[in-house]
Amino acid sequence: MSPGPGFLKRSRPRYGEGAIKVLLVAAALVSMLTTVGIVIALIPPAVDFFREVGFGEFITGTDWSPLFSPPHFGVLPLVTGTLMVTLIALVVAVPLGLGAAVYLSEYAHRRVRAFFKPMLEVLAGIPTVVYGFFALTAITPLLQDIWPVGDPPQVFNALSAGFVMGVMIIPTVASLAEDSMNAVPNDLRDGAYALGSSRMQVATRVVFPAALSGIVAAIVLGISRAIGETMIVAIAAGGRPNLSFNPLEGMQTMTAFIAAAGIGDLPTGSIGYRTIFAVGLLLFVMTLVMNLVSIRLVRKYREVYE
């Protein structure tokens, strides 16, 4: 006996699924509209700034003193300080983060992983102002005491700020990279073990390449977190723009300048006030370019398993 024409129809409408879909679309729209709002807020004051200051002077100038007389608007010292601190943070975070990810994914027992991964992620929940004071009051004096040759680090320096920032972003790199490694099918591991590979060979030559796209995304997210960090560099790296490649000296980053100038007594509409938006727009563009490059790399090395 064949079923009637209404056999495959739903007995009642599923309003819950529709509500969840609306919530998901709303979440996506909020993130998109937030980005658009940031761009809208940055562009008009930045355009007014570049009407008074040449773009070439802003990008290539080596002297940054917009609040002094006579003012200078060369942003290279801020860019150099930002990249210096970020590079030091990556030197700390990438090896330790990826090492922790390999251990948790390939070596740790399930119970050990369930204990250590939440403990590792606790580092991401510590307020960044605490990291900044830790760098200033603990790491910098330690470096000054044990520094073997030459002049020791200054009270404010990029080395201690970058080191502590690297510790801060270790959970970001480790957690996302470990999730990518866990997503690699066990069939690849079993095949490698069947060929006589050691656990280290499986981890470095099978799992790591297979999860490369997720690992790249984890590193890029860590870079974005480091570039956008404010409190650590504002407290430990100093507030003096310094075009130097010596990490033992004090430097000011782009975010630190925005924080310092934003809480000052700058008249709204003045050229000093507009520098905040010009630096913010440059920081936004740098982050956007980096994310576009990372998307291209992720798509290039992505592995799809069925």
Rank of each mutant, 00 (worst) to 15 (best):
I271E: 14
N157C: 05
H72F: 06
Y15D: 11
A26S: 12
V206S: 05
F245T: 01
I295L: 13
G97S: 06
D179S: 15
M286V: 08
S2I: 12
G4V: 13
A161M: 06
Q252M: 13
I169T: 00
P171C: 07
M119C: 14
R240S: 14
E178T: 10
P267L: 09
F7S: 10
G6M: 10
R302N: 12
V304Y: 14
F55W: 07
L67H: 10
E57P: 06
V94G: 03
P153K: 00
N182C: 08
V233A: 04
V149W: 14
F284C: 04
V216H: 02
H109T: 13
M168W: 02
D151Q: 11
E57W: 00
G162R: 01
N242W: 05
T86P: 00
V53S: 02
T128D: 02
V220L: 05
L104M: 13
G280Q: 04
I263H: 14
T86G: 01
V47K: 07
D151C: 03
A237P: 13
G250D: 12
L42G: 03
E303I: 01
F277I: 04
V39Y: 12
L143C: 05
A218G: 09
A259N: 12
K21E: 07
L283M: 11
M254E: 07
T204P: 03
L143E: 04
V112N: 08
S213N: 09
A124M: 07
T82P: 01
P247I: 05
E306G: 10
Q201M: 11
F73W: 05
V102S: 04
T275M: 11
F257Y: 15
L67C: 06
T128H: 08
Q252L: 03
V149H: 14
G6E: 14
T137R: 06
A27K: 13
I88S: 02
G56K: 05
W147D: 12
M165N: 00
V92A: 03
A203Y: 03
A259Y: 14
I235E: 06
D63L: 06
G214F: 02
L248I: 08
L120H: 08
H72S: 13
T140D: 07
L90C: 02
V112F: 09
P66S: 07
G191P: 07
S270H: 11
P185R: 09
V53N: 02
A124R: 09
G166L: 02
A135Q: 04
L159I: 07
V149M: 08
I295V: 12
A192K: 11
G97V: 03
A93E: 01
S270W: 14
G74W: 00
S175M: 02
Y273H: 15
Y103M: 08
L83H: 00
E17K: 12
A28I: 12
R199H: 11
V75S: 06
P5L: 12
A124E: 04
L266K: 07
M200K: 10
V220H: 01
A158S: 09
